[in-house]
């Protein structure tokens, strides 16, 4: 009886959050298409940014065939995979993090905390930026092109692993961002750390071998960022092992638990603008 009640409670809670998220999707879409000119400007700039990562690698490798054991096309594939990944991240998460930092800075987090849903959910999943979806589309098209150029095929297994790797990467980056932004509750003036996180996230754009040049201490700090992108790219290159998968899952699990703990502990120290 008790386990049955627990199952009903869990399914009811799930339905509630799914309903809330579905409503959020509709509200965000309506806000996006309200102004057509700004819609097209955002669309154009999003496509430009998708191309930016690839253009960067093209410029960096314009005179050399390979770097760090990665061929030019492999680096381009990494760049296009990054485009797909960051498209998802900016669509679902990054805008919420920027808003969260601002709410903490201005002492307006109360409005999020008073809602009858989980505070972490309302703080980090409220805004959906559909425009960033163009980065996903452009990234996928470019990835397909580079795979064709390398004569590499992609089967159902690779697609499933690719999606799983992207999801793991999203979870890792989300956990890192949430941990850092939660800590701004102790020093709200540093809300501009979000801008720094946008730049630091670019660490995942480059091969892990690049960071072996730095000291062991710095490399250890950078390791979680290298799990964001490399697994998904290695899946497409048919160079992904079970050990690498376990490492990625392990890092994701540890960081997720850590992020949740830091968020909960930080909230205890939060004081709003009126207190």
């Amino acid at each position: 009886m008790e386990s049955g009640n627990k199952k009903i409670f869990i399914s009811g809670t799930m339905k509630k959050y799914l309903f809330v998220y579905k409503t959020l999707l509709l509200l965000n879409w309506e806000a996006l298409v309200e102004y057509r000119t700004s819609f097209f400007t955002k669309l154009f700039s999003s496509m430009l940014y998708s191309a930016y990562h690839v253009i960067t690698i093209l410029l960096l490798t314009s005179t050399v065939p390979s770097v760090f054991g990665w061929s030019r096309y492999e680096l381009l594939l990494l760049a296009s995979t990054y485009s797909v990944f960051i498209g998802f991240y900016h669509m679902i998460i990054s805008q919420n993090m920027a808003r969260l930092a601002e709410e903490i800075y201005f002492g307006r987090l109360d409005f999020l905390l008073l809602k009858p849903i989980d505070s972490q959910f309302s703080a980090t999943f409220w805004i959906i930026d559909f425009i960033s979806g163009t980065r996903i589309v452009v990234g996928l098209l470019l990835s397909w092109y580079f795979l064709q150029a390398m004569h590499l095929g992609v089967g159902f297994t690779e697609v499933v692993l690719y999606i799983s790797a992207i999801a793991l990467g999203l979870c890792i980056l989300y956990s890192i961002w949430l941990s850092v932004i939660s800590l701004t509750i102790f020093n709200p003036r540093l809300s501009n750390v979000v801008d720094l996180l946008f730049h630091i996230s670019e660490i995942g754009r480059y091969p892990r071998e690049m960071y072996k040049q730095v000291s062991v201490f710095i490399f250890a700090i950078l390791i979680p960022f290298t799990f964001i992108m490399i697994p998904a790219t290695r899946v497409l290159l048919h160079d992904f092992s079970a050990r690498q998968a376990l490492e990625a899952v392990g890092v994701c699990a540890v960081l997720s638990i850590l992020a949740r703990s830091i968020w909960k502990i930080s909230l205890r120290s939060y004081t709003s603008a009126s207190s």
């Binding site: 760090f68 809300s191 801008d195 720094l196 670019e202 480059y206 960071y211 040049q213 730095v214």
Partner: peptide
């Protein structure tokens, strides 16, 4: 805040430096 903005200006060049050194 100024210090965080300063770190911002360091990040991309340092990443590119690592790439170029390799």
């Amino acid at each position: 805040r100024s210090f965080v903005y300063f770190l911002l200006s360091l990040t991309s060049p340092m990443l590119l430096l690592l790439f170029w050194q390799g």
